[in-house]
């Protein structure tokens, strides 16, 4: 059963302006989220996961980026063509983003209550003063929902008085403080230790299940994505290379990068250090023409450097961008 499409990114290119030209980070990202769907986005650090997500909300660093091609449809409307007012509505009512590093994602000089309160205030029709009490009740409710002890106290605490795990919970509380249709979780808990990370993931899972909110979970761990997501996107150097359900992806990976990624997962039951993938992400200033994985690919052929491979449906809900599938 396929739900209605909530978010669809088509052929998105994002370039950053740097000294000596443009760093061509995204090269045709295609991405789809249905209502209430849990989508995992997996890839190495620096492959453009965060850039893709930030461009949905239009919060890329001002003035330094350029979007030469692509469309981002949210509920059928192109975000890149929206007026400022429509974008503000998208940001305040529709989508919430949880940032990767809870130590920098909260403003250091304002109380938790003040910050959550503002998110609530501008995401609803509340007027200040009149509904101050109501905002407070709602933000304390949000703090309670992420299982933080003593919400009344957290409400008047400053970020530096909380631990990393508590801060990440606060960030989640902020995201769920008012109803949203899509939550983007950018590697929540990557900067925390594993047990806390696990708690955070469970918490997120519980919340989206309860509220039937769609979620995009960005992670560089395939294991986490397998556990949490209905569908996984694998991203490499600014392109989506493969997408499938976790079962299919783990059983029948097609793209050489996905295969390498799966081989890199360390196994607890012996076998030594995992295989990994040699080489590193290409230079975005002068990326190779054609497939961006060709330099690290063991099955490279001349056609790979001609033009970038397009996503190709090899079976239902399983898409791969690689020339191997067509040969």
């Amino acid at each position: 059963m396929d739900n209605k499409i909530l978010l669809e990114i088509k052929n998105l290119h994002v370039w950053y302006k740097v000294y000596g030209g443009y760093s061509k980070v995204l090269q045709g990202v295609n991405f789809l989220v249905r209502e209430g769907e849990r989508v995992g986005l997996v890839g190495e650090a620096g492959c453009g996961k965060t850039t893709t997500m930030k461009s949905i909300l239009q919060i890329l660093p001002p003035g330094d980026f350029h979007i030469p091609r692509g469309q981002i449809f949210y509920k059928g409307q192109d975000v890149l063509k929206m007026s400022f007012k429509e974008i503000q509505r998208l940001r305040s009512r529709e989508i919430a983003m949880i940032f990767q590093d809870p130590t920098t994602a909260l403003n250091p000089v304002f109380t938790i209550g003040n910050q959550i309160g503002d998110v609530i205030k501008y995401s609803t029709a509340f007027e200040e003063n009149v509904y101050k009490e109501k905002i407070k009740i709602q933000s304390i409710k949000a703090i309670k929902e992420v299982y933080l002890p003593d919400p009344e106290r957290i409400h008047i605490n400053y970020p530096f008085q909380l631990s990393g795990g508590m801060r990440q919970r606060v960030c989640i509380a902020m995201a769920i403080s008012s109803p949203r249709n899509l939550i983007i979780a950018d590697e929540p808990g990557t900067s925390l230790d594993v047990t806390i990370q696990d708690q955070i993931h469970r918490l997120l899972n519980k919340i989206v299940e309860k509220r039937n909110t769609a979620i995009i979970l960005i992670t560089h761990s395939l294991g986490v994505a397998k556990e949490m997501a209905d569908r996984i996107y694998v991203m490499y150097a600014g392109t989506i290379v493969e997408t499938a359900t976790p079962e299919v992806l783990f059983k029948n990976p097609v793209h050489p990068y996905t295969k390498g990624l799966l081989a890199s997962v360390p196994k607890i039951s012996g076998g030594g250090i995992a295989k990994g993938i040699p080489g590193k992400i290409p230079d975005y200033l002068n990326p190779p023409s054609g497939c961006r994985f060709q330099l690290r690919c063991e099955q490279e052929s001349p056609i790979c450097s001609e033009k970038p491979p397009q996503l190709f449906e090899i079976e239902k809900n399983h898409l791969v961008a690689c020339y191997l599938t067509k040969r």
Binding site: F99, T104, V109
Partner: peptide, 25 residues
């Protein structure tokens, strides 16, 4: 900083970000 991007991402108006969240720190 991330917190400014986050505040922007939550649709908090520019002037509030400028004169509250950016100015004070």
């Amino acid at each position: 900083k991330d917190f400014i991007a986050a505040e922007k991402g939550y649709g908090i108006p520019e002037r509030i970000i400028m004169f509250k969240y950016l100015l004070k720190p």
